[in-house]
C-alpha cells in the first residue's frame, strides 16, 4: 500500500534521511522507532506530501507518487502530527476542524460523524465548541486523531499519536486503532519512541539512526533479542528496565 525506495531528504547541508527503503502492505502496520532527530517525522511528512523536496521513490497503492499529490490522496491518507498544537488551527473550534475534511471531500452526515468521532476519541461532547487553547494537551492530541479518522482514510501516518495521553486513554486509542484496522483494513505507519506501543500495533519494525534505517525486524525477533544493531539492543534494554516498576 505504501512503499519507500531509497528515499533521501536534505535541508540545506543537513542530510536528514539518507536512502531508506521499506514497504507496508494493505491492512498491515509498520512501526518506526529510533533516536530523536534520526529523520522519522521527516519520512512521514514526505510520504504525506507535505515536503516536496525529496529524492528516491514513494509508492502509494503500487504507483510512484509525484511530489505534488492529487486531492484524492489527501482523503485516502491522513496524518496525525507529533505536535498537535501545530497541526490544529488555533482560531477554529474543534467542531469546525472536524467538519472541514468532510466538507472538502463532500461527505454527508457531518453532525453524526462529528458526534461519533468525538466519542471514539474519548472526548466529552462539551469540548466540541472549544478552541485548541482551551483544551488540555491530551485533549488536543485526541482532536487531531479524531480529525484524521473522520473522513474514512485508508492509510494513517501516526507520529507519536499517544505520547501526550495518559495510559488509560492511550489504551482506548490503541484499541480503537486495532478495531478500525480489523474492520476497514486500514494501513498504519506508526512512529513512537515507546517500544511497547509500537510493538502492540506493529508486527514489523524499522529502527532509525542518523537518517538511516539501521535494522528492520519482526516483533518476535525483537522480543527474543535476535537483534543485529547496537541501537536496537540499547532501545530494547532500556524498554525492559522501565517495564519493571
Amino acid at each position: 500500500m505504501i512503499g519507500v525506495e531509497n528515499l533521501r531528504i536534505r535541508f540545506g547541508d543537513v542530510e536528514a534521511v539518507r536512502g531508506i527503503s521499506f514497504a507496508v502492505a494493505k491492512g498491515e502496520s509498520f512501526g518506526i522507532v529510533g533516536e530523536s532527530g534520526s529523520g522519522k517525522s521527516t519520512v512521514l511528512r514526505a510520504i504525506a506530501g507535505l515536503n516536496r523536496n525529496w529524492e528516491g521513490r514513494i509508492l502509494f497503492d503500487g504507483e510512484p507518487m509525484a511530489p505534488q499529490r492529487p486531492r484524492s490522496f489527501f482523503r485516502r491518507v491522513q496524518m496525525v502530527f507529533q505536535d498537535p498544537y501545530g497541526s490544529l488551527h488555533p482560531r477554529q473550534t474543534v467542531d469546525r476542524q472536524l467538519a472541514e475534511p468532510l466538507m472538502i471531500h463532500g461527505i454527508d452526515g457531518i453532525d453524526t460523524r462529528i458526534v461519533r468521532a468525538l466519542d471514539e476519541a474519548g472526548l466529552a461532547a462539551r469540548l466540541r465548541f472549544r478552541y485548541p487553547h482551551q483544551l488540555s494537551g491530551g485533549q488536543r492530541q485526541r482532536v487531531a486523531i479524531a480529525r484524521a479518522l473522520i473522513a474514512d482514510p485508508e492509510v494513517l501516518l501516526l507520529d507519536e499519536p499517544t505520547s501526550a495521553l495518559d495510559v488509560s486513554i492511550q489504551a482506548e486509542i490503541l484499541n480503537l486503532l486495532a478495531d478500525l484496522q480489523r474492520a476497514r483494513r486500514l494501513t498504519y505507519l506508526l512512529v513512537s519512541h515507546n517500544l511497547a506501543v509500537v510493538t502492540h500495533l506493529c508486527p514489523l519494525i524499522g529502527v532509525m539512526q542518523a537518517g538511516e534505517m539501521v535494522e528492520r525486524l519482526t516483533v518476535e525477533a525483537l522480543r527474543a533479542g535476535h537483534i543485529t544493531h547496537p541501537h536496537t539492543a540499547q532501545l530494547r534494554r532500556l524498554a525492559l528496565e522501565l517495564e519493571e516498576v
Binding site: V167, A171, N175, A178, A196, T199, V219
Partner: peptide, 12 residues
C-alpha cells in the same frame, strides 16, 4: 493499562 513489550495482549 500500558502495553508491554514482553507480555503482549491482543486488547488492552
Amino acid at each position: 493499562c500500558p502495553p508491554s513489550l514482553m507480555r503482549p495482549r491482543a486488547r488492552l
